[in-house]
Simulated assay, not measured.
Amino acid sequence: MSMARANRGVQALAAHDPNTVGPYTLLGRIGAGGMGRVYLARSDDGRLAAVKVVHEEHTAVGEFRDRFRREIRAAQRVGGEHTAAVLGSDADADLPWIATTYVPGPSLETVIREHGALPTESVHALAEGLLKALRGIHDAGIVHRDLKPSNVMLTVEGPRVIDFGIARAVQPSAESMLTSTGMVIGSPGFMAPEQVLGESVGPPADVFVLGCVLAYAGTATLPFGRGATNQHAVMYRIVEQPPDLDGVDDEALRDLITRCTAKDPDQRPTVAALLAQCAEQEWGEDGQLWLPPELVGQLARRATELLAIDAPIRAREERVGTAPDQPRQRKREHRGRGRAARWGESRRQTRRKRR
Rank of each mutant, 00 (worst) to 15 (best):
A14L: 15
P23H: 15
T25P: 04
G31I: 05
A32N: 12
Y39S: 03
A41T: 06
R47N: 05
L48W: 09
A50R: 08
V51T: 06
V53D: 05
E71L: 01
I72G: 09
G79N: 14
V86G: 08
A93L: 02
L95F: 13
T101N: 00
T101L: 12
T110Q: 10
I112L: 11
E114W: 08
A133I: 02
I137F: 00
G141E: 10
I142M: 04
V143Q: 09
V143F: 03
S150G: 12
T155E: 13
F164M: 01
P172M: 13
M177L: 13
T179K: 15
G189A: 04
V207F: 05
F208M: 06
G211F: 08
L214Q: 05
T219Q: 05
A228R: 15
P242R: 15
D249V: 01
E251T: 12
R259Y: 01
R259C: 07
D264Y: 11
A273V: 01
A276C: 03
A276N: 14
E282D: 14
E285C: 14
Q288N: 13
W290G: 04
L291K: 01
A300M: 10
L306P: 02
P312T: 14
A315Y: 09
R328A: 10
R332T: 11
R348Y: 00
R355Y: 08
